[in-house]
Lab assay of single mutants.
Amino acid sequence: LRQRHVACLARSERGLGFSIAGGKGSTPYRAGDAGIFVSRIAEGGAAHRAGTLQVGDRVLSINGVDVTEARHDHAVSLLTAASPTIALLLEREAGGP
């Protein structure tokens, strides 16, 4: 079961505080899956403080732009754009009992 949710992050002077992996033109985060995933969350960064991202979340869109088939460098450029806030649509595998 997959759950979707939106995370809104305000960029700090240190950026957004998370890294992505995967996407076309880069090493897959999961074998056989060209999706883009949250690969790291920086301690004390914007994403960590927001508490809405988890490592392993699939990134579906960035500020309304679909990145499900995107190249890695395109997703990075969307994240590093000048916008002071970033809205992410994420998909998470629902774990637990």
Rank of each mutant, 00 (worst) to 15 (best):
L1R: 06
L1D: 10
L1C: 08
L1P: 05
R4E: 09
R4S: 07
H5I: 15
H5T: 09
H5K: 09
V6I: 12
V6W: 13
A7R: 01
L9E: 04
L9H: 02
S12A: 11
S12N: 15
E13N: 12
E13R: 09
E13H: 12
E13S: 13
R14Y: 10
R14P: 07
R14T: 13
R14F: 08
G15R: 05
G15V: 04
L16N: 05
L16M: 12
L16K: 03
L16P: 11
L16S: 04
G17N: 03
F18Q: 00
F18E: 01
S19F: 07
S19P: 13
I20C: 00
I20G: 02
I20R: 01
A21Y: 06
G22E: 03
G23Y: 02
G23A: 00
G23S: 01
G23F: 00
G23K: 01
K24P: 03
G25F: 07
G25I: 02
G25Y: 06
S26L: 03
S26E: 10
S26T: 11
S26V: 14
T27P: 10
P28C: 11
P28S: 08
P28A: 09
P28M: 10
Y29T: 04
Y29D: 07
R30Y: 09
R30N: 08
R30A: 11
A31S: 15
A31K: 15
A31I: 12
G32T: 07
G32Y: 07
G32V: 04
G32F: 09
G32P: 05
D33N: 10
D33T: 11
A34K: 11
A34V: 11
I36Q: 00
F37I: 03
F37S: 02
F37R: 03
F37M: 04
F37Q: 01
V38E: 00
V38G: 03
V38L: 04
S39Y: 04
S39G: 06
R40N: 14
R40M: 13
I41K: 04
I41C: 05
I41W: 04
E43Q: 09
G44E: 10
G44C: 09
G44M: 06
G44R: 06
G45T: 10
G45V: 05
G45P: 05
A46V: 11
A46E: 15
A46T: 11
A47C: 08
A47H: 05
H48M: 15
H48L: 15
H48K: 09
H48F: 14
R49A: 12
R49T: 13
R49Q: 14
R49W: 08
A50R: 06
A50W: 05
A50V: 07
A50P: 06
G51N: 08
T52C: 10
T52F: 07
L53M: 15
L53K: 01
L53S: 00
L53N: 03
Q54F: 07
Q54C: 06
V55D: 02
V55F: 01
G56Y: 02
G56E: 01
G56T: 02
G56N: 04
D57N: 03
D57K: 01
D57G: 02
R58W: 00
R58F: 02
V59R: 02
V59G: 03
V59Q: 02
V59P: 00
L60M: 11
S61D: 05
I62G: 00
I62F: 02
I62C: 03
I62D: 00
N63S: 04
G64S: 06
G64A: 05
G64I: 01
G64Y: 04
V65F: 09
D66P: 06
D66L: 04
V67N: 00
V67F: 03
T68E: 07
E69G: 09
E69Q: 12
A70P: 03
A70T: 10
R71Y: 11
R71L: 07
R71I: 06
R71Q: 11
H72F: 10
H72N: 08
H72S: 05
D73I: 05
D73M: 06
H74C: 11
V76T: 09
V76A: 10
S77Q: 13
S77R: 14
S77V: 09
S77I: 06
L78T: 03
L78K: 03
L79W: 04
T80M: 12
T80L: 11
T80V: 11
A81M: 11
A81W: 06
A81P: 06
A81T: 13
A82C: 11
A82L: 08
A82I: 08
A82T: 10
S83F: 08
P84K: 14
P84T: 10
T85H: 10
T85R: 11
T85C: 13
T85L: 07
A87F: 13
A87C: 15
A87W: 10
A87H: 15
L88G: 02
L88K: 01
L88V: 08
L89Y: 09
L90Q: 02
L90I: 15
L90T: 05
L90G: 01
E91N: 02
R92G: 03
R92L: 00
R92S: 05
R92W: 00
R92M: 00
E93L: 06
E93A: 09
E93D: 15
A94W: 13
A94H: 13
